[in-house]
């Protein structure tokens, strides 16, 4: 038996070392393209933010110092759109997390046709953002032909509400919540289903009512998934764009992303748009720092 085991061990190590070398080269392409993708645009945005650079005015060049930032912050739209961004993100997150928790609790119960209800419930998440904006605006919230207007008339109102005209931010909030509620519900449902059955039985045996069961067993179990949902939704919702552009409310209730777009598209001011983009980057980074730390903890566990 002398040499054979040793030979096996040795070949094992060799293969591992070979795998290590191959592993480095296998990782290299992905790392390189992602590095290019994450560093180059950011660096260029920083560079442009300090330049006088307007596409319509090619003669006006040179360093702008901090004036792009100054004028971006002084823009009356900036404060308004910043508030809109925060309201939209916060409102949608509260709606989807509360609604998603309730929905998940409901779908966790046994009932007839659970699979079909799950399919119905998850569907809005797969609808193109442009489609949901137009469908809600024209078929449901339209002041004359919309469904809501019809309901209002049914209850005797003569002047139904013009949702997108009068309450633009609220309406977009409804549309976005409709899209993201399934996401929150699905993730929280998945988390709920990993809850130990025995814990349920034990708490029932100890005489815990449904409320204290929810408060002391379910909620602590959902704490982490809820955090994940909040963070990921924040990242996506900060970038809400299609609903606002296609809904046609960018001018009255735009958000930061829309403001950057309009600086580039309407004002053709690259410098200002870059300054605005940097503000958005800082805002998103604050959130992502939390998320990365959270996921990182999970990676080690």
């Amino acid at each position: 038996m002398g040499g054979l085991p040793r030979w096996h061990i040795l070949s094992g190590i060799m293969a591992t070392r070979q795998a290590q070398v191959l592993g480095r080269w296998a990782l290299a392409p992905a790392v390189t393209v992602l590095a290019a993708w994450s560093f180059v645009p950011l660096a260029l945005t920083i560079y442009f933010a300090f330049l006088r650079y307007n596409l319509q005015d090619p003669d006006n060049t040179g360093w702008a110092g901090f004036s792009n930032f100054y004028y971006f912050f002084k823009d009356p739209y900036f404060v308004k759109d910043l508030i809109n961004t925060v309201l939209l993100v916060a409102g949608t997150i509260v709606t989807t997390v509360v609604g998603g928790t309730l929905l998940a609790l409901l779908l966790d119960q046994p009932f007839w046709g659970r699979g079909i209800v799950r399919l119905l419930m998850i569907s809005p998440f797969f609808v193109l953002p442009t489609v949901s904006a137009l469908v809600w605006k024209n078929l449901i919230m339209h002041p004359v032909f919309g469904l809501f207007a019809g309901i209002q008339r049914f209850f005797g109102s003569h002047e139904p509400l013009d949702w997108f005209g009068r309450l633009p931010l609220f309406s977009v909030g409804i549309v976005v919540s409709w899209q993201w509620l399934p996401y929150a519900a699905l993730i929280l449902l998945t988390a709920l289903q990993s809850l130990d059955e025995e814990q349920k039985d034990a708490s029932a045996m100890d005489g815990a009512g449904p409320l204290s069961y929810f408060r002391y067993i379910v909620l602590p179990h959902l704490a982490r998934p809820i955090t994940v949902v909040i963070l990921i939704e924040t990242i996506f919702l900060l970038n809400t764009f299609a609903e606002i552009k296609v809904g046609g409310i960018g001018g009255i209730a735009g958000n930061l992303t829309y403001l950057v777009f309009s600086q580039l598209n309407d004002a053709t001011d690259v410098g200002m748009a870059a300054a605005g983009g940097l503000v958005a980057v800082v805002l998103a980074n604050v959130v992502s720092a939390f998320l990365v730390r959270l996921v990182g903890k999970n990676l080690e566990a």
Partner: peptide
């Protein structure tokens, strides 16, 4: 990025997804 250990690389890759498109729109355009 390449010199990170594996979990570091993974988290860095995750963080590239956090980049808001508004921040990259201007140079990409």
């Amino acid at each position: 990025a390449w010199s990170q250990n594996t979990s570091g690389t993974l988290l860095w890759m995750l963080s590239t997804k956090m980049m808001p498109p508004a921040g990259a729109l201007i140079p990409i355009y």
